[in-house]
Design a protein around this nucleic acid. Structure first.
Length: 316
DNA sequence: AACGCAGCCAACCGCTACAAT
DNA sequence: CATTGTAGCGGTTGGCTGCGT
C-alpha cells in the first residue's frame, strides 16, 4: 500500500519546532481544526509536512496534555497495562488521556523498563526472570492469555472510538474542557481480576465463564450488571478489603458482607512480589488510592490494582 | 573551564490499517 | 477487487542537558 514519504519534498523543514511555528499551528487548529493534516501546513503557513504537524500537535501542543513527572499511580497504570497489552502505547495512552503515547513510550523505555529489570522482572513478559511461568497452573495461564487477548481487542476498539470522537468534535472540545470519562472497560478489568483471581476461597457461580470476561457482562450506560446474583469476583479495593462483588452500579462496587483479609489470597511465590523494586513506595503514604502491602503482594493482583482504586480510574 | 559520557525526550522513519476511489 | 492516499502506531535516532572527571 504505497505510502509516499511525506517529508521528502524539498523545502520542508525538519527538526525541532520553533515557538513561531508552534504558534502558527496552534492558531490555525484553534480556528479551523486540523482537518486533513496533509493539507494543513500550507494553509497554516508552515514549511512542514502534515505528519510533522500532526505529531507536534498530538505530542506537544494539544491543550489537554499533562506534562511533567509521572505520578505513582500513572507509573503503576503503565506497568500494569503494559503487562496486559505489551508495547501498545496508544492503547495504554487511551487510559491515561492526558499523556501521549510517545511520552508513555519514552517513560517506559527510560525509566520503568530499567526498574523492572532491576527488580529481576522481564519487562517484556512481566515475569520473574528465574521463573518460566508466573502462574502455577497452566490452565490459569491459558485463561489469562485468552482474557488478555479479549481485553486487548476491547481496548483497541475503545481507543479507536476515543480517537474518532476526538477528531469529530475537535473544535468543541477545545472549548469544552475535560476529556470524556474513562471507557467502561476498566470496570471489566475489575471484574476480570475478580474472575480470574478466583482462588480456593472464592466460589463462583457455575456459569461464570472464564474464557471471556466480556461475554458475561452487559453494559448499559455506566452500569454493569452481574449476570447472576452469585457471579462474583474478588475486589481488592483501596481500603484493603477483599470481598466478593455482588455487582457494580455506576462507580460503586456492591460487595457482599464477608470481607476478608487480602493476605489470604496471595498464593503466588514471593518472587512475584510486584513492589519489591519500588522501595520508595512502601509505606510512603504516596499514591493516595493505592495500597501497598509490605507482605506478599501478588504480582498479577497488582497488575490490576490501580483500576480498583476508589474511583476505579487511573485517569488523572 | 573543558571534555566525555549517559540519560532523556522530541521528532523522525517506516510500516500497517483503513477509507476512498 | 485493486489501487491509491491518509492517519496512526511503534521503533529508532539524534540533539540537548546534566553530571562527573
Amino acid at each position: 500500500m504505497g505510502r509516499s514519504p511525506c517529508c521528502d519534498k524539498v523545502g520542508l523543514k525538519k527538526g525541532p519546532w520553533t515557538p513561531e511555528e508552534d504558534q502558527k499551528l496552534l492558531a490555525y487548529i484553534q480556528d479551523h481544526g486540523h482537518g486533513s493534516w496533509r493539507a494543513l501546513p500550507p494553509k497554516a503557513g508552515l514549511q512542514r509536512c502534515g505528519k510533522s504537524c500532526r505529531l507536534r500537535w498530538t505530542n506537544y501542543l494539544r491543550p489537554d496534555i499533562k506534562r511533567g513527572k509521572f505520578s505513582l499511580q500513572e507509573e503503576q497504570t503503565i506497568i500494569q497495562l503494559h503487562a496486559l497489552l505489551g508495547n501498545r502505547w496508544s492503547a495504554i495512552a487511551s487510559h491515561l488521556p492526558k499523556r501521549t503515547d510517545n511520552e508513555i513510550k519514552n517513560y517506559w523505555n527510560t525509566h520503568l523498563k530499567k526498574r523492572l529489570v532491576k527488580m529481576g522482572i522481564d519487562p517484556t513478559t512481566h515475569k520473574p526472570k528465574n521463573h518460566a511461568l508466573g502462574c502455577s497452573q497452566p490452565k490459569e495461564i491459558a485463561n489469562l492469555s485468552h482474557m488478555a487477548q479479549w481485553e486487548s481487542a476491547r481496548l483497541e476498539a475503545e481507543a479507536r472510538i476515543v480517537r474518532e470522537s476526538k477528531s469529530n468534535s475537535f473544535t468543541s472540545q477545545l472549548a469544552s474542557g475535560p476529556p470524556p470519562s474513562r471507557p467502561p472497560c476498566l470496570d471489566i478489568l475489575k471484574v476480570w481480576q475478580g474472575t480470574w483471581m478466583k482462588r480456593k476461597e472464592v466460589v463462583f457461580a457455575s456459569n461464570a465463564n472464564l474464557e471471556s470476561p466480556t461475554s458475561i457482562l452487559n453494559f448499559s450506560d455506566n452500569t454493569i450488571a452481574a449476570p447472576t446474583p452469585n457471579v462474583v469476583g474478588l475486589i481488592n479495593d483501596s481500603t484493603n478489603y477483599v470481598g466478593t462483588c455482588k455487582g457494580i452500579v455506576g462507580n460503586s462496587l456492591q460487595l457482599h458482607d464477608h470481607v476478608t483479609d487480602p493476605t489470604n489470597y496471595t498464593q503466588l511465590p514471593d518472587s512475584l512480589s510486584f513492589l519489591d523494586g519500588f522501595g520508595d513506595l512502601h509505606g510512603s503514604g504516596q499514591g493516595g488510592n493505592v495500597v501497598f502491602e509490605d507482605n506478599k503482594v501478588n504480582y498479577w493482583s497488582n497488575i490490576l490494582n490501580v483500576v480498583n482504586s476508589p474511583m476505579g480510574s487511573p485517569v488523572f
